[in-house]
Write a protein that binds this DNA or RNA. Structure first.
Lengths: 217, 217, 217, 217
DNA sequence: AATGAATGAGATTTCATTCAT
DNA sequence: AATGAATGAAATCTCATTCAT
C-alpha cells in the first residue's frame, strides 16, 4: 500500500521545501505544524522524516540556501563594476529584483532567524554579515572618492538594506507599478540619500550632525 | 529581574504586560508559552486569567496600545511644524527616538501582526495605515512645494518607514553612537533621499525613471 | 469541567506511583506507555505532567525510593546483631520477607536499571553497592571468625543476593508455602552454603578450588 | 566492529542475529529499534524483512535457540554421571561455564521473556521448565539417597538457578578471577548449600524449619 | 486574586512494517 | 537481496484554557 498517494521519489524533498517556504512565510516557523506541511505535500507527517531530519533542520536549510544564493548572485551582479556609484546602483537593482522574485525566502531569512538554534544562527548571521559587508565596502569606497557622503557607514549600511528589504512586506506581483518603476523609486531614494550634501541646497541643516563618515562597528 | 513572588493587585497586569513584551520580543508570540510568562511574573499559569482574557488578547492589547501611543506621540512631535522639510525632520527624529526607547514594542508591532487573528489584524493595520499616512502627507506636501522629489509617494513612504524601523534590529543602548549621532545619520539619509535631484550633480541617471510622483496604492 | 473524572488532588501522585509500579513490573518500563498509565489512574496522559516531570524521572523516583527503603529497613533488621551467623540469618530473613511483600518494586529495581539514564544509573548503583556491602561485611567477619568459609567474598555476595532475589520471579501470595517455610528454605541454602567445609563430609572436593577467601573487587 | 556494508547472502541472517543479541542485551527488546539493528548490520530497515518475519519472531528465535542449546549441552555435560553429587557438580560447572561464554544470550532469555507474545512465551517457558526439571531431579535423587538435604526441592531449584544465573549480571571476561576460581566459588556455595545439616555444626538452627523435602509446585 | 489539578487537542518524532523498483 | 519511500499508529510531552477551592 506504500507510495500510492501523494508525492513520490526524489521530487518529494523539493515539494517539502517549496511548501515549507510558503507555510513559514504565511504563518511563521513556530506556527507551521509538520502535519500541515505534510498535508500540503500529500504525505503523512511521519513520512517527512524520510527527507528531513528535523523541523529545525528544514528551516536552517531553507535559510542557508537562500543566503548562499543571495550572496552568489550579488557577486555576479556586481561583477565588472568598479565605480562606487555604478556598484551601488547595481546593488539596489539586484536587491530589489531579487526580493521581488523571491520575497518569501527573503522574508523567512530575515524574520525567522530567531527560530534558529544557536549554532545554526551563528552560521546564518555570518553569511548575512558577508552580504552587508559588500554594501559597506561600496559605501566606504564612495565616501573615499568623495562621491558619497554618509554620517556613519554602519548605520547607512543597515538602513539601506532595511529600506530595500522592506519591499517584501508590501510587494505583490501584478501591482500598480512595473518592476522598473519600483527599481527606479528605490534607486532615487538610495543614491540621493548618500549623495554629498554640498550638492544640495542646504537641505539637512537641522541638527548639529557630524559631517564626517566613520567606519567600524 | 526577579519580582515579588505571587505579585498582587493592580500591579500584576502591568507585570504581565512588561514580561509579555520581553518574551514576545525574544521568542515570538507563538514560541512564548503562558507558563513561561506566568513564571516570569511569579504566578501560576492559571492566575494569568484573572488579568487577561486570552493569549491572543494580550498580544492585541500590547500591539494596539503601542500603535496608539506611537500615533499620539507623533502628532505631538509634528505639532506646530508647517514646513514639509521641518515636518520630515521632526518625523525622522521622533521615529528614531521612539524606536530607540521602545524597540521591543516596535519590533513586536511589526513582526507579530501575522499572529493576530483577522479582526484584530484589521484594527491594527488600520492604525498603522494612519501612521503611514502622516508620512505620505508630508511627502505629498513637499513634492507639491517642490522641496522634495520622489519617484513614487507610496514606495517612498514604505521605504522610509522600513529604513527607520530597521533601527530596532540592531540598536542596543550604550553602543558606539550617541542618540544624536544616530538621529543625524538617519536624517541625512532620509532628507537627502527625497531631495530634488536637480540640486544634485546628476547622480541618479541610470535608469529611465519616471520623474513624476504618483500617489495611491 | 476540570477534575470531574478520575483521581484528585494530592492522592493522584500516589495513584500514579502505584499504577506505575504495577505496569512497569508487568510490561517493563519501555513497554509501559504513559497513556496506559494515565488510563489506569483515570486521568488524561497530559495530566500526568502535573505530578511527574518525565517518564524517566518517575522510574528513577520509584527505584531510588525503593532502594533507600531497602537499605534503611535492612539496617533496622541488623541492629543489635553482632554475631556473623545471627547477622546472616537476619539478612536472609529480612531480604526474603521484604521481597515477598514488595516483589514488584524489587523486580523493577533490579531489572529496569538499564532504562535509567547515565546520571540516575550511577546514583542507584551506588545505593545498591551500599546494600551489597552490608552482606560482604557480614561474610568477611564470619570468615575472619572461622564460622564461614567461602571461596571468594565478592562472588559469594553476588551469588547470595541473586539467590534470594530470585524469589520475586516466582513468589505469589497464597502459594503452596508459608512465609516461614520460604524463609527457612532460603536460610538453609545460604547458611549451609557458607558453612566451613571442614564440618562436612568431604562434599565439595571436585575441582582444585582455592580454599582461601579473598576480598576486593 | 564495522561490517561489510550491504552484507549479502546467507551470512546476513547470522549478522542480524548476532547484532540482535548484542542490542537486545544492551538496551532491551522494546528499546531496540529495527532501524538500529539494520544500521548495525549495514543494511536498510526494510531489508531486514528479507531475513526475518517480524521483530517478535527474531526475539523468539534467539530465545528458543538459546534454550535448546542450553538443554542439549546440559544433557551432554550430565551424560554418564549417575551420582547426584557428581551430577550437581557437573550441573554447576556447566551452567557457570555456559553463562560465562554466552552471557548475553542467557541474559536475554531470562529478562526478555516478558516481551514474548503469549504463544511464544508458553513454548519458551516449557523449555525452561525442562531445564529446571533436570536440576530438580538431581536434587530429588540426592535427597532420596541422603546425600542432600533441602527444605523444599522447588525452592532450592529456583534458588540455585538464580544463584548461578546471577553470574551474568557481573561477569566480564578478563576480570579478577579465573574461570576455575569462579566455578569453584559457585560449587562451594551450591554443594555446601544442599549438604545435610547433620554434617554441619548446628549452623542453621534458628527457625523452626520443616526438615522434610517436599516436591511439587 | 491565586492555586493546583484537570482537560483535550495537538506538537514533533519514532516505530514496525510494506512494497514497487 | 537490497533500497528508499511510504504508511498509520503510537510515543512523550506541551499547550491554552478552565474551575473548584
Amino acid at each position: 500500500m506504500a507510495r500510492t498517494i501523494g508525492s513520490h521519489g526524489p521530487t518529494t524533498l523539493e515539494a517539502i521545501r517549496k511548501a515549507g517556504v510558503r507555510l513559514i512565510f504565511e504563518r511563521g516557523y513556530e506556527a507551521m505544524s509538520l502535519r500541515q506541511l505534510a498535508a500540503e505535500v500529500g504525505i503523512q507527517a511521519g513520512s517527512l522524516y524520510n527527507h528531513i531530519s528535523t523541523k529545525q533542520d528544514l528551516l536552517f536549510d531553507l535559510v542557508q540556501e537562500h543566503i548562499n544564493d543571495l550572496l552568489r548572485e550579488l557577486d555576479l551582479a556586481l561583477e565588472g563594476k568598479a565605480d562606487p556609484v555604478e556598484q551601488l546602483r547595481a546593488f539596489v537593482a539586484f536587491h530589489v529584483t531579487y526580493h521581488m522574485t523571491r520575497k518569501r525566502e527573503v522574508f523567512i531569512a530575515n524574520s525567522e532567524l530567531r527560530s534558529l538554534d544557536a549554532k545554526n544562527y551563528d552560521v546564518v548571521v555570518a553569511l548575512r554579515g558577508a552580504y552587508e559587508q559588500r554594501l559597506a565596502q561600496i559605501l566606504t569606497d564612495g565616501v573615499s572618492e568623495g562621491v558619497f557622503e554618509v554620517v556613519d557607514i554602519q548605520v547607512a549600511t543597515f538602513a539601506i538594506i532595511a529600506l530595500l528589504t522592506g519591499l517584501c512586506t508590501w510587494y505583490r506581483p501584478g501591482g500598480r507599478l512595473t518592476r522598473d518603476a519600483i527599481i527606479a523609486a528605490h534607486e532615487k531614494l538610495v543614491l540621493s540619500g548618500v549623495a554629498p550634501q554640498a550638492a544640495l541646497g542646504r537641505v539637512g541643516s537641522g541638527s548639529k550632525s557630524p559631517r564626517t563618515a566613520v567606519a567600524g562597528s
